[in-house]
Design a protein around this nucleic acid. Structure first.
Lengths: 226, 226
DNA sequence: GAGGGCCATGAGGAAATCGTGAGGATCGGC
DNA sequence: GCCGATCCTCACGATTTCCTCATGGCCCTC
């Protein structure tokens, strides 16, 4: 489980890092709003812990920026207890709001509550098709003919996940590029083609004439289960 | 949007009912834990607002009971600020925890944040007519006679979508050309005829005498569902 | 019944898009 | 620093998609 912590106070940043690391999270940190957005696009965290009071690009702006392309849970930390701030942050797209000072136990419990929501969606996610069985939660692919494990890289997983979470639906190139390579991807689908090929090589019975990872020229790709 | 409010204090129950009703929620109430579980099973609310301090069957028990069969978002209200209570409730399956006294605005914002996650359940836009069923969201066409997938190209989709979003209405050529080929299209409807033909070939039972993609000479085309 | 719009049809070439192979850049572990 | 895994760049056929062109039918007008 990966957490992105964004705070302009180095001391708080450090304290939170230690807290989350001690609870077995992978921690990514950002010292300002711009860095938070870049880190999020780069690392695809499972949860974002965000200080509302950052200079320049503020917390609300970061929420808007993230929500432009991501549905990652966002927990806001703030020193301000005003109702207006809370409402503004929550309506901008934040999922929870904690005021300083807060207790570590409560923060961790709220993070658990937020990340738990994602799991049930993915628990059902996964499917068997062709010669393979894919488990998106466990991140494993098994070939059903001989039981061999098939290894996918990080980028391959992100791409496959985006496609498999929309079974039967056409997923536009733009969406795929944004989900896998972040919002400021290069507008060239060169590497998208490359990774589709990789997936077909590893998952399709006959990569030359795919039956489950289909191309729709000029539009995008489609995952067909079964 | 339907909310279940569970509290043993009739006064709070009434106040919350008024609050949520004023915000256009359908309100279901329960005065104790047992009633809360029964009402939830009966009414399938979109969100549950739960007081932790109910006698007999307490709030934690209700959370456990609900989580046995439902993933409905649960927001807990409590007079106790102890960290241990919050952690216990959140880890039992609650999604948010608010301590009394609280502001109405904040409560409503938190409820919005919790229910927002559920919305992206895609609604199917499309229609069935003739021998085919068209899903504009998934970008798929299935022939109902034999279940075969019918493939449309990008331009064909854009044209069909423009027509289907105006069911029964005449769509002028000028509108179609602008929607499909952009504002500075060539003012010749040569390719418009071509793609109408393509769509008829793929969607109409008898492309020679179309029943759903109709020509109105000199004016435009009309999509007739059914 | 001749002529002119307007539309349907068929075939074929231009252009965009895609699949493929080879190879260099980058990153993290040792 | 080395090495392997991973990620990305580039160039070239192959395929799909898009559009042009030419022909013929229908209907209305004159």
């Amino acid at each position: 489980m990966k957490v992105l912590i964004a705070d302009d106070d180095p001391q708080i940043l450090r304290a939170l890092s230690i807290t989350f690391t001690a609870s077995d999270y992978d921690v990514v940190t950002a010292g300002d709003g711009g860095a938070a957005l870049r880190r999020a696009a780069e690392h695809h965290p499972d949860i974002v812990v965000l200080d509302l009071g950052m200079p320049h690009l503020g917390g609300i702006d970061v929420i808007h920026g993230l929500r432009g392309w991501s549905t990652v849970p966002i927990l806001v930390i703030s020193g301000r207890m005003d109702s207006i701030d809370k409402v503004q942050a929550l309506d901008a797209g934040a999922d929870d709001y904690v005021t300083k000072p807060f207790l570590t136990d409560e923060l961790l419990a709220r993070v658990r509550a937020l990340t738990r929501r994602r799991l049930p969606v993915r628990e059902e996610a996964g499917a068997a098709f062709g010669d393979v069985r894919v488990d998106l939660v466990a991140r494993s692919v098994v070939r059903t003919t001989d039981g061999a494990d098939i290894h996918l890289t990080r980028t391959e997983w992100r791409l496959l996940e985006t496609l498999m979470l929309n079974p039967g639906r056409l997923v536009p190139q733009e969406i795929l590029l944004t989900e896998v390579w972040g919002p400021q991807h290069v507008n060239d689908s060169g590497y998208l083609r490359l990774y589709i090929r990789q997936l077909r090589k590893k998952l399709e019975r006959d990569p030359g004439s795919p039956r489950h990872l289909l191309t729709e020229a000029g539009m995008g790709y489609r995952f067909v289960p079964g």
